[in-house]
Design a protein around this nucleic acid. Structure first.
Lengths: 223, 223
DNA sequence: GACTAAACGGAGGTAGCCTCCGTATACTAC
DNA sequence: GTAGTATACGGAGGCTACCTCCGTTTAGTC
């Protein structure tokens, strides 16, 4: 009984995650937290949800005590990894908008999203057990991703290179559906299909964009 | 990684469970196996899926070695408990048919089924993790329960006390739906509603039955 | 009653979980 | 720059669950 139930109650650390990444957290603490999230993401994606936490701490280059200070329970770590991945995805949307034309930014971001979903599959069994406990987590994450998608779509529509009658949430639903329907391991099929979808987004644009999108012109859509 | 993955591969014991409960199993082995299943069912239903196996062995009055001999993995135990519960349920159908008039037997059995589903809720998290791996388990169990229901229905129809145009599978689907829709803890609501359903089954019978069914005449169907 | 194959039981090795506290370090004030 | 302090680190160690192995017991057979 005492195996992973006892210490669940404890003050959650929760430094706000992405909104205010560190509220008076010391610099080394921020760094270690980030390292842990990266290492945990890799471990969960690769080895499933029951990786020893000691392994994660070691591969992050920190002690086990540090891991437990930041994430008192396994679930806390899983949730933080999930949130973090969504954070990174949403941040990339803004970055891409500053470095690329809106339509290319959208295309790139959709491919990132495909890979994001593929990575999540590894942690699925861990997340599954939290579905009942914390439904708001998933709703929030979906809303944030949809907001990022909407932003990219709006930029493309404003530039006249992407049609303007598509909602971010609908787009993500379509992309998510594609990811779910295609095979587990090979995400190339998903990437191709999403590229195809993106071509559809450009098709109804006010002005045709001259920029070429790599993944969208592939001929082999066998599945 | 080695926490519960390593010893999963091993010759399954599988003495056939209900079809031939013990194929040349020694008497004490049969007895202990049964005890373990009962203790495990109680433990899973009460404490969730992560009860220490040592506790189950102790409350069954056997050594941990005996538990592992019968059920090499935790999943094997969970699956066996599930199968066993379905076995017991189906056996009770036959028993009830020999001791009660068919319509009463059916009414009693439906109430047993309600309690069966309520008990399963406790092990849900354990079963959930096996859903992907072993879908045939659930299909087989549903088919067997449906067969038992069909048998009871047929007996009632032959006696003229239950209408004859209902399939066992459909009946179970309805009862299962009732169980799922009503609240977790209090299964009384389910029992009342299933009683109501049963009254409907009698309503279209060839000849009205004189036997009274307790749970069916309750007036308060608020929940 | 004697024999043997089958089954029991639990000690003990292994490993993951989590805590605790001495040590190290980032920030602050001067 | 230096001193002081709150904050964070790290990992040894205790606890517990998992699982195996093998000496002991017992059911079934002749």
């Amino acid at each position: 009984m005492g195996r992973e139930a006892a210490p669940a109650e404890r003050e959650a650390i929760d430094p706000g995650d992405s909104a205010s990444p560190d509220r008076s957290l010391r610099a080394d603490a921020v760094r270690n937290r980030e390292r842990l999230l990266v290492a945990a993401a890799a471990a969960f994606a690769a080895g499933g949800a029951d990786v020893p936490l000691e392994d994660i701490a070691r591969s992050a280059g920190v002690g086990i005590g540090t891991l437990y200070r930041h994430f008192p329970t396994r679930d806390a770590l899983v949730e933080a990894v999930y949130r973090h991945e969504v954070d990174v995805l949403c941040e990339r949307a803004d970055e891409l908008l500053t470095t690329l034309p809106p339509d290319q930014a959208l295309a790139e971001w959709l491919q990132l999203f495909v890979r994001h979903v593929a990575t999540k599959r590894g942690m699925l069994s861990a997340l599954k057990s939290m579905m009942g406990a914390d439904t708001s987590l998933f709703e929030q994450s979906r809303a944030r991703a949809a907001a990022a998608a909407t932003k990219l779509l709006a930029a493309g529509a404003a530039a006249g290179t992407v049609r303007g009658d598509i909602q971010g949430a609908d787009l993500l639903r379509a992309v998510g559906g594609i990811c779910m329907s295609t095979d587990q391991e090979r995400s190339e099929a998903s990437e191709r299909l999403v590229g195809l979808l993106f071509d559809g987004l450009r098709h109804g644009a006010v002005a045709a964009s001259p920029t070429a999108v790599t993944a969208s012109s592939v001929s082999n859509i066998s599945g």
